[in-house]
Nucleic acid binder design. Structure first.
Lengths: 129, 129
DNA sequence: CCTTGACCTTCCCGTGACTGGAACCCCCAT
DNA sequence: ATGGGGGTTCCAGTCACGGGAAGGTCAAGG
């Protein structure tokens, strides 16, 4: 399989697939003409990576998870640890964003949104006291 | 005031302040020795920027908001529009993150986290069916 | 007077995870 | 032979800074 087919199958852009090879996540073979040739295992790995990335894992986490995935002697505790650390990051970010949403929501509600210049949003940003 | 004092007062790193000058958000004066000299208005702008950034506005949004802030003839509707667009982005991101948190949370709950290799997290990433 | 140390300056590189584009090669159909 | 649709590499840009080098400036202490 060439990169275009793999891109279609996995839903990943060809650029991304090349990037994943660059950083050593996958190692497709090469045809005589220099084209990448992907085996089933490569496609499988790429699907794995796509799902892990969709869950927000960093590339380095993906590298770790992939290594665990291929290690038959892994302990599930190691996987869980990575996942829990990532979950904590997600929750931290959610809580940051919730705070922003609340503040911004209140300011927006308080703003008339008409053609006059008075604006509680700008007043707040300007340090209103 | 020199940059260090301004950094202390505003809570922004000196690097960030220089960056904001680079991209034209502020225009401090210069002393004969080449040092930046910050007026009250510069400090005020920096505080404005710090608060806007803390609410997650992009630098370009900040530029727009600052321009509106300084425009006495603005319409609050323009401010509200920028804020609402940003709020929508925040809410979209929150909803993405919530989805990730839910999925990841379920997987983590299902994972024994012991020294055995069986792991629902990896099974899911591997395309478990 | 000299030195020390805390400032300040500019400049360049690196971050994460790609994306866009240029310049070029390869293969098949018309 | 030509056109189009693959593929390849490499370079630059994204966003909002942060780290660090190399060097100028200033006030205080020996």
């Amino acid at each position: 399989m060439n990169i275009g087919d793999v891109a279609t199958q996995t839903g990943l852009p060809a650029k991304t697939i090349r990037y994943y090879e660059d950083i050593g996540l996958i190692k497709p073979l090469r045809d005589e003409n220099g084209y990448r040739r992907f085996r089933e295992q490569d496609v499988h790995k790429l699907n794995f990576l796509g799902r892990a990335r969709a869950l927000g894992f960093t590339i380095e986490d993906c590298r770790t998870l992939l290594a665990l995935y291929e290690d038959e002697t892994r302990a599930s505790a190691d996987v869980k640890k990575v996942a829990r650390a990532h979950l904590a990051q997600i929750e931290a970010k959610i809580s940051d964003l919730n705070a922003m949403r609340d503040t911004l929501g209140h300011l927006i509600d308080a703003c008339a949104g008409d053609d006059r210049p008075d604006c509680p949003i700008l007043q707040d940003l300007g340090g209103k006291p």
